[in-house]
Amino acid sequence: MEAAAVFEIRSSDDVVRVRQEVRARAVAAGFGLVDQTKIVTAASELARNTLDHGGGGAVRVESVSQGGRRGVRLTFEDQGPGIPDVEQALKDGFTTGRGLGLGLGGSKRLSNEFAIDSAPGRGTRVTIARWNSR
């Protein structure tokens, strides 16, 4: 498996493919079942955000390691309308499209690291990482 790979997110099928790739990486990093499920679910939320709110984009999937711990880092990028109020968007229940509005806040809770960079008209980039807790 390459250290990093980029996947397009243009359709609902792509979201499924991203989930499968993230699962494979989490397994390779030695994640337990719960940790696997958390990072795959976070990936699914963010991939869907990229598709529904960002008008499609791409995700960079990386296998990372730091101080003996292994993990998975995901960077979602789109060229969509961007998020005017990031703080607001992180609150549960906030949504501009479909879904329950748990995408951003939820995926933050499911990750060990979370960073978001977005502004109106500039698109959105969300980076998350989860480390093997065992």
Partner: peptide, 13 residues
């Protein structure tokens, strides 16, 4: 499944 349930709770659903 248990892992799914734990994750859903964390997600806030």
């Amino acid at each position: 499944r248990p892992a799914v349930a734990i994750t859903l709770v964390e997600l806030g659903l």
